[in-house]
Every structure is written in C-alpha cells, then in structure tokens.
Design a protein around this nucleic acid. Sequence first.
DNA 1: GTTTCTGCAAAGGTTTTGCAACAAA
DNA 2: TTTGTTGCAAAACCTTTGCAGAAAC
Lengths: 160, 160
Amino acid sequence: MTEIVRQRLDEFLASKELRRTKQRDVIVEAAFSTKEHFTADDLHEMVRKIDRTVSRATVYRTLGLLVECSLLREIELGRDQTYYDPNFLDKPEHNHLVCTDCGRVVEFQDEHIALLEDCITRRLGFTPASKSIHIEASCEELSRSGKCGYQVAALARDHR
Amino acid sequence: MTEIVRQRLDEFLASKELRRTKQRDVIVEAAFSTKEHFTADDLHEMVRKIDRTVSRATVYRTLGLLVECSLLREIELGRDQTYYDPNFLDKPEHNHLVCTDCGRVVEFQDEHIALLEDCITRRLGFTPASKSIHIEASCEELSRSGKCGYQVAALARDHR
DNA sequence: GTTTCTGCAAAGGTTTTGCAACAAA
DNA sequence: TTTGTTGCAAAACCTTTGCAGAAAC
C-alpha cells in the first residue's frame, strides 16, 4: 500500500471526525494489494485471509468510505455486480474494454477521447463531473485462430 | 409502435421457434409507447394499464427477449437499477449524460467520438461489439443562478 | 466518558426460477 | 397434440440496516 493511500485516508477520516480502526486498516491493505478489479465479496475474502473476524458489513461500509474519498472507483463490467477499481490513483482517466469471449478486462487511457467528452459536455450546457466509457469487443486472435490465450487462462482460473 | 418493431420481433420469434402471445404484444406496445427510459417495474406498471393480468415475471422474461433482438438496450444510469432505452432504433449510437443535480438524462450522439472508440478498440487488438459512454455533470444554469429549471420539474414529478 | 464502529442477523430490493395450468401452432 | 408460455410464489442474490456490545479518542 502506497503512502499516498494511507495519507489520503487519514486526512479524510480526520476531516469527517471518523476513526481509524483495525478493520479499516486491514480492508485498505487488502484493497490496494492488487491491481485487479474486485467485488465487495472478493474483497471480503481477501480481507479474511488477513483477519478472519472482519465482517461483510464492515467491508461494505468501508468500501463506501473509500469511494467517497476517491481512493477507489465503482465500475460496471456488465456482470450484474459492482466492481471496484484500485487503479485510478495511477491512471485517473482510464476506461475499460471487456472481451465478450474471454471476459478479459483491458484498461486504456486516451487524451483525445477525454477532451472530446469534455467538449460535448460543455456544448450541452453542463460542467463535467465524471466520465466513463465501456467497450465490449471480441479478440481478433479468437476470430482468426478460433482460440484466445486469455480464454484458456480464464477457464483454468475458474476451475481452480 | 412502429412497423419496424413489429417486424423485427416477429422475425426474431420465428427464427427461434418462439411464440407470439397476447402478453408479448402488450409489453412491446407499452415499451414503445414512450421515448423515456424505464425500469422493469416501470414497464410492468405501463403494461398493467393495458392489461392488469400480465405478471412481473413475464415482463422480465420479455425484456430479455427484446434486448436479445436489439429492440431495447440496457443502460446504466447510476441508480442501482437496470434501465431500458427504446431509442436505439432511431439513434443507434447515442450515449447518455446524467445531471448530478436534477437527475435529468440527456442523450447525445457524436460521430467523432464513435470513430475514436472504434480506432482505440482496433488498436488494442479487438473487434468492436458495443460501446457506451456515461457522463455525469452538473447544469451550468444551476451553478450560475442557484437553480435549474429541470430540478423544479423533477421535484414536482417525484411528489406527484 | 462519549461517540463512533463492529458483527450479527434480519430485512430490503431487484431479478430469476420451478411448477402446474394454459395457450399457441 | 406438442411444445412453448404464463402467473404465482418462493428462492436467489447482493446490499443495507437496527441493535447491543466493543473500541477509539
């Protein structure tokens, strides 16, 4: 976990007169131990590998705080569950492409598209607050060769 | 309801050896009687104004079919419920901007952004399937004058 | 000492499903 | 007739919440 995370969280908690607890520490540690996107339940499992006593309710409550202070962002991957993305500190304007074949999620950032979104928003009479692009697409590798390296990896992972 | 809707649905049902039923007719009629986005439950209410016996389960099941044959599209408005958009027949590549103040949803279409999304997708090694942009923003009207015409309208609507 | 926080279990809300009766082809 | 469809109620699922005891400050 980077120093930046620790510092921003402490400032946030102090500013709202909230407390730093053992549970919140563990949850933050788990959330930023990975670059992967995760669900509340994924995080609960990660947390319980560190401390088995932390409850699901506390994970949900802490996720709310982490989103509020912009350490995490909620993202939609089209899977009927909210995912959380810990990579917005490093790449503040990135977006997501989801492969319809293997489910792989690719992050991409593009300044032209960000600028264009901004122009469109202003032209419509608004001040931009947040923007997100969700692309679904299929691997060219798969349509060419009939299989996709990541699909194999994903299957192996699921059957573990 | 346009002829196109009727025709595409009939073809779809025929191609999958599914049946045309009274309930499906009523649901399609209700769904395309508006340009507004709606939830499953909104649609259920609209449907019941035509035929009180149609069940919520059938509405859900039919929504699935309508999405499958691309007559409707699921959209995320950031409200923890799936919304359905009946306007993709007229504007096949539009996106949504949601006002963080009044909740107003503005549809916009922009060929430059669509093209750019396509380029990015291909550059990453994928074949585009579907793309969507979600923008949250606040009315300039509101930050200038302290109120927004649509906010008033929305409040009136909610208190009805 | 106060006030916030936690875990538990229960409740909430949306969507899906099993099943027997019904309706389309 | 055969096969798909419906309504009902129950189940499934994720997320939130009330509360009493525990922990932070």
